[in-house]
Write a protein that binds this DNA or RNA. Sequence first.
DNA 1: TCTTGACCTGGAGCGCGCTCCAGATCCGAG
DNA 2: CTCGGATCTGGAGCGCGCTCCAGGTCAAGA
Lengths: 115, 115
Amino acid sequence: MTVLSPATAADRTGVSIDTLRYYEREGLIGPIRRSAGGRREYTEDDIFWIGLVTCFRDAGLGIADLREFVAILRSERSPQDRVAFLRERRAALEERVAALHRAMGVLDEKIAHYS
Amino acid sequence: MTVLSPATAADRTGVSIDTLRYYEREGLIGPIRRSAGGRREYTEDDIFWIGLVTCFRDAGLGIADLREFVAILRSERSPQDRVAFLRERRAALEERVAALHRAMGVLDEKIAHYS
DNA sequence: TCTTGACCTGGAGCGCGCTCCAGATCCGAG
DNA sequence: CTCGGATCTGGAGCGCGCTCCAGGTCAAGA
């Protein structure tokens, strides 16, 4: 099974090496397996997971939120608990969308005013 | 014409007094008129403008973005320039909405998986 | 073997957006 | 006139999310 060097992982995910290490320290990813010499070896699964993390980061979630998300998914919680947590997170994102829509409405108003 | 004290303005807008001063320093609002003694006197117009600013802040825009927004609206730019700027901002917000939708999609997938 | 460059760790530094503080001033109630 | 609460200013401090650095290790190529 092929593994990826830190540089390659960074390249593939669009996340800097420093940030990958940071995410690992913060418990958002990994722990990443190491080679005999102590270098990180990223698997495709790691890359996929990093993709999830960046997806949520891009959506504006904070590190603490992500950590909680990871903790829930890795925990032995019941499906019901997980679903409850996920729905709650979803609702928070919907509120963000609503805030965005409000701002876009203001913009539309201004645009209409100057058109 | 009635004016509002800093405390009242803070109360009305939900923005702390410190933050109102900060916004003023940064050029996002005001400059707010002062009383003979040097205290700020917020007008209803000021309150309205603060509402716009908080709307955009809630949508995740940064201070620099807001400053630019204010600068454009106050400048002597042509309506075309303003509309162009506003449309550009709107597109950026739409991209944020898209990022949010992507994250919500991931959440939905997980929810479906555990349901 | 030697060089070179990627990688390691721990910790410092940075920009953002506030938030708090000290010390002074203002002003309405008593 | 006095008192005390609200406000003023300039500047320090803080949490977040990286980003960078020093000093050392590892490993592939000449």
